[in-house]
Computed example of a mutant assay.
Amino acid sequence: MSFETKLPERALVTGASRGIGKAVALALAQQGLTVALVARSQPDLLAVQAEIQAKGGKAEVFPIDLADLTALPQRLQALLDRFGGCDVLVNNAGVAHVGPLATLSLSEWQRVIDLNLTAAFLCAQAVLPGMRQQRFGVIVNVVSIAGKRAFPNWGAYCASKFGLLGFSQALAEEERQHGIRVTSLCPGAVNTPLWDRVEVDFDRSQMLSPEWVADVVAYLVRLPRGAVVEDLTLMPAAGAL
């Protein structure tokens, strides 16, 4: 069986201002892709863009609040119109809340579900028409080990990530006929700024680095068109922390 060769040229990375998203954007730009950087903070995105350009890469900045679900489809369409389409989508943006489910407010529950799950769904919906038309595309949904294993006091986060894993697997089944490859990437603890706001005493030196996760994403993107890794779990050698 032969597959038409097409190299990805344009990638959209959400949560690109820091952590995993920033590392992924840098890695994909190093591979020669032009990267659409999406996050809320324009100053942070401009700093990432400058770092990419200093290394000879190309990136464009799109300050978008992914949690504003009502406006998100229109904002994404405007992005794609300006950017010229999308060959690779990395759904990385996410938020965590630590606390027992028994006292979790509805607004906090919805905040986590909206960004971690529903925004990823809307981002995928936005890029699918173009990917289907060209019969080529790669979607990497950055899930978490919390999408496969429950952790106490992380109930909303786990629920959102279990949902994202299910969404990713269903999307893979629906879109393979259109030449679109979908991967669920489930990393364990990654040493990102997320932990700055979490009052949990972990040894962050034992965590994965964002760059290690980005290397995996870059590998997934450059796989031959006839191959796909649909589900990948990447853990710290020390195990779940």
Rank of each mutant, 00 (worst) to 15 (best):
W154D: 14
V88Q: 00
I20H: 15
A11G: 10
L80R: 02
L223C: 06
N153H: 11
G32F: 02
W109N: 10
L194N: 13
G84K: 00
V95W: 10
S205F: 05
L46C: 05
L220R: 07
V61Q: 11
D65M: 10
A150R: 01
G155V: 09
A172C: 03
Y157S: 09
A170F: 06
G226D: 12
R40A: 12
C123F: 06
A119V: 10
V228F: 00
K58Q: 14
W212T: 13
A23T: 03
E4Y: 08
V48A: 05
G163K: 05
L171F: 03
V229G: 00
V35H: 09
D68R: 14
R18I: 09
R18Q: 15
L66A: 02
V90D: 04
Q206Y: 01
R149F: 11
G99I: 01
E108T: 14
V38R: 14
K6I: 09
T233H: 08
C123E: 00
V190C: 10
F121G: 08
S209P: 04
S184R: 02
V216R: 13
A54W: 14
A119S: 15
G84L: 00
E199F: 04
R181D: 08
L241C: 00
L106K: 11
A54D: 12
A102C: 01
F151G: 03
A71S: 15
R204S: 03
A126R: 06
I139M: 04
V13A: 06
R149I: 13
V24F: 07
D87P: 03
P193V: 07
P100A: 13
P100I: 07
V38A: 15
E9M: 06
A238V: 07
D114T: 08
P224E: 04
C158S: 06
L122P: 02
A240Q: 14
L76M: 05
G163R: 08
P129Y: 08
P43K: 04
E108S: 06
F202C: 11
H97W: 12
V198D: 05
V143G: 03
R222P: 00
R82V: 01
V229P: 01
Q110L: 13
W195H: 10
F62D: 13
A11Y: 02
D81G: 04
Q30T: 10
S105Y: 05
M207H: 06
A218Q: 07
R149M: 14
Q74F: 11
Q125Y: 11
L232V: 13
G137C: 00
L12E: 06
A25N: 09
G130N: 01
S209N: 03
G84D: 05
N116P: 07
T70C: 07
A59I: 06
T192E: 10
